Computed example of a mutant assay.
Amino acid sequence: MRVIFMGTPDFAVPVLDALVKAGHDVVAAYSQPPRAGGRRGKALTPSPVHAWAEELGIEVRTPLSFRKDPDALPALQALEADVAVVAAYGLILPQAVLDAPKHGCLNVHGSLLPRWRGAAPIQRAILAGDAETGVGIMQMEAGLDTGPVRLEERTSIGGKTAGELTVELSAMGARLMVEVLADLDGHPAVVQPEEGVTYASKIEKAEARLDFTRSAVEVERQVRAFNPAPGAFFEFQGERIKVLTAHVQTDLELRADFESIPGLILDDQLAIGCCVGAIRPDMVQRAGRGVMTSRELLRGLDIPRGTRL
């Protein structure tokens, strides 16, 4: 098929790669424009999809908006594509774009629709304590992730981080997309159920602050949901310390009356009291330093028992 690919982050790269390896003619790759780095004056950095498409010799286009750029839509229509494959592109596609390819636009969506429509389905599924998630190949329409689904696959969340799930679901979505494109008629679009709709709003950086007024189980989910980005954290003496991995502490010796005081350090090994239970960070990171164990952290930073975070 003549395929237009639309994607931006790392999640989308395996999908693009799979299309090329399957023998499809990717006539153009659309991605969000290059962005400046974290420091002023730093050169613009192309997105992961942009960089990989160039490696593959595919033309890359980076319109700011299909609605505001008068040339963007005619240029896309001129490609005369059979289908557009979309994976975490990050721009809203107007109806004219959705209608341009012969078979419309197919989206790789990282949830079990209609649960977690929207921007951050992987993180929201972890935060909510969902037992499983998955990928759906969705025929796009104008609504927010409301289109019918052609193919779906599930996986257990277990103790996976958002980063681990992203890698897994990306590979799964790439495989499913190739399967659907190989036989569109054999994978008819099934309308999503009306019940069970939830929305995965964009992750705000403030959400990454660990909330010890929640249960230890919920705090541990925060750690996994925000690994690798934006990174869950707590503050001690004005310093932000990221928590990359943690586990719910169940040792009986920690079951003291003050365990229910949120943010209280319960021992000399960084067990932290929550409203229910306690959490123990395993791998942490101080600003400007490498990843270390909690034990290594405490060798250089005294956070004694009885401290309130």
Results as ranks from 00 to 15, higher is better:
residue 83 V to I: 11
residue 83 V to A: 11
residue 84 A to K: 03
residue 84 A to L: 07
residue 84 A to Y: 02
residue 84 A to C: 06
residue 85 V to I: 07
residue 88 A to T: 01
residue 88 A to V: 05
residue 92 I to Q: 11
residue 93 L to T: 02
residue 94 P to T: 09
residue 97 V to Q: 05
residue 98 L to Q: 04
residue 99 D to Q: 12
residue 101 P to A: 03
residue 102 K to D: 09
residue 102 K to N: 05
residue 102 K to V: 12
residue 103 H to V: 09
residue 105 C to L: 06
residue 105 C to I: 08
residue 107 N to M: 11
residue 108 V to G: 04
residue 109 H to L: 10
residue 109 H to N: 05
residue 110 G to Q: 13
residue 110 G to T: 08
residue 111 S to T: 02
residue 112 L to I: 14
residue 113 L to K: 07
residue 113 L to C: 08
residue 114 P to D: 12
residue 116 W to Q: 07
residue 117 R to D: 09
residue 118 G to D: 06
residue 118 G to L: 11
residue 118 G to Y: 09
residue 119 A to N: 06
residue 120 A to W: 03
residue 120 A to V: 01
residue 121 P to D: 10
residue 122 I to E: 06
residue 122 I to F: 06
residue 123 Q to I: 07
residue 124 R to F: 07
residue 124 R to L: 08
residue 125 A to W: 04
residue 125 A to L: 02
residue 125 A to Y: 03
residue 125 A to Q: 02
residue 126 I to G: 07
residue 127 L to Q: 03
residue 128 A to V: 01
residue 129 G to S: 04
residue 130 D to F: 11
residue 131 A to F: 06
residue 133 T to R: 10
residue 134 G to Y: 07
residue 135 V to Y: 08
residue 137 I to A: 01
residue 139 Q to P: 00
residue 140 M to N: 08
residue 140 M to G: 08
residue 141 E to C: 13
residue 142 A to C: 06
residue 142 A to I: 13
residue 143 G to F: 12
residue 143 G to K: 12
residue 143 G to I: 08
residue 144 L to F: 13
residue 144 L to V: 15
residue 145 D to A: 09
residue 146 T to V: 15
residue 148 P to N: 11
residue 149 V to G: 10
residue 151 L to I: 08
residue 152 E to R: 15
residue 153 E to D: 14
residue 153 E to R: 15
residue 154 R to D: 12
residue 154 R to I: 10
residue 155 T to Q: 13
residue 155 T to P: 00
residue 155 T to I: 15
residue 157 I to R: 03
residue 159 G to V: 09
residue 159 G to Y: 05
residue 160 K to V: 05
residue 163 G to I: 05
residue 164 E to M: 08
residue 167 V to D: 14
residue 168 E to P: 00
residue 168 E to F: 00
residue 170 S to N: 00
residue 171 A to M: 14
residue 172 M to V: 10
residue 173 G to V: 02
residue 174 A to H: 01
residue 176 L to C: 06
residue 177 M to V: 03
residue 178 V to F: 02
residue 178 V to N: 01
residue 179 E to N: 03
residue 181 L to A: 04
residue 182 A to N: 06
residue 182 A to Y: 03
residue 183 D to N: 06
residue 183 D to L: 01
residue 184 L to I: 04
residue 185 D to F: 03
residue 185 D to S: 07
residue 188 P to H: 02
residue 189 A to W: 05
residue 190 V to C: 11
residue 191 V to K: 15
residue 191 V to R: 15
residue 192 Q to A: 12
residue 193 P to I: 12
residue 193 P to W: 12
residue 194 E to H: 13
residue 195 E to D: 15
residue 195 E to K: 14
residue 195 E to T: 15
residue 195 E to S: 14
residue 197 V to L: 14
residue 198 T to Y: 05
residue 200 A to V: 02
residue 202 K to S: 13
residue 205 K to Y: 12
residue 206 A to L: 12
residue 208 A to W: 03
residue 208 A to R: 02
residue 209 R to Y: 08
residue 209 R to V: 06
residue 210 L to G: 00
residue 210 L to M: 11
residue 211 D to G: 01
residue 212 F to T: 05
residue 212 F to A: 06
residue 214 R to D: 13
residue 214 R to M: 13
residue 216 A to M: 07
residue 218 E to W: 09
residue 218 E to G: 01
residue 218 E to F: 05
residue 219 V to S: 06
residue 219 V to N: 04
residue 220 E to D: 15
residue 220 E to G: 15
residue 221 R to N: 03
residue 222 Q to I: 10
residue 223 V to C: 07
residue 223 V to G: 03
residue 223 V to T: 04
residue 223 V to F: 08
